[in-house]
Amino acid sequence: MTASPFEIEIPRGRVIEVQRDDTRVRRGTGLLRGMAVIWKHWKESFKLNRSYSQIHGTFTIEYPEERPRIPEAYRNMPILLYDDETGHELCTSCFQCERICPPQVIHMTQAKDPATGKPVPAVAEFIIEYDACMSCGFCAEVCPFDAIKMDHEFELSTDDHLRLTVHKEQLLRPISYYAHIAPTMWAEVREGALKKLQGNIRRRPDVIGLAPQLTEKIAARRAELAAQAAQAAQAAAATPAPPAAPAAAAPAPAEGRKLTPEEKAAKLAAIRAANAAKKQQSGDGS
């Protein structure tokens, strides 16, 4: 028995009665049918259900003991990477991440060559305030050197607030760690990242750019540098001619740089002139 939907207008609007066909006499069988459904759920709930294609069975993953497999692209908090073999950090302190960070929780200082005082493509200190980080992942996305990546670690609760201001030592992870948690994502960028790293390592003097916790690597590098210096000293004692070569090479970039200040000066003069003209105009106006 199916009647057409009933429709009437009442002062407050329109009423539509939907025929639910529940006028037939069921004599309690509807109740039994409902109970049968629940019985099946109860009976099947003693089996585990991990396929998610079935509606029966227990889906629960009992968290501290069992852990769900975290998807590769899961992101929680940013970490920094360093190379396993050389111990060099991938970060060059280009400030891209600091600039894009929406809650502005990334802070860094660029490393400087102690001898010349010039900036080096490496980072001296890197701080992320995990307590205010919103896990947006912009920093990892914007990083041109693939140095900053999103971690899978999510158990960060602590009673020590200051611990959530994380410094470079705690942020650094080896590349092998990231390759383990996100193999395909690392494979996509691996070659480019390592190539850029090799380029950067060449421009890093002394032990700058080495992960600070790798004391053995740093000691080895220091020994290597000392040996090189000793060799160089020996070589210098033997032949005093070579220092002329760097001295000759040095002016070339310096000259190249000289152009820029000139341009700058010209630009500055133009702006000053424009400003003066503006001032005059406004003075005339008043």
Binding site: F6, I8, E9, I10, P11, V15, E17, T23, R24, V25, R26, R27, G28
Partner: peptide, 28 residues
């Protein structure tokens, strides 16, 4: 008695729904 009562009960429920609708119609 059970069969008769279920039938009567279902009929009375249907009748009540019909009465409620009639009230709505009267209000409309």
């Amino acid at each position: 008695v059970y069969l008769w009562l279920t039938r009567v009960y279902a009929a009375s429920q249907a009748e009540r729904r019909r009465a409620e609708l009639e009230e709505l119609i009267a209000a409309g």
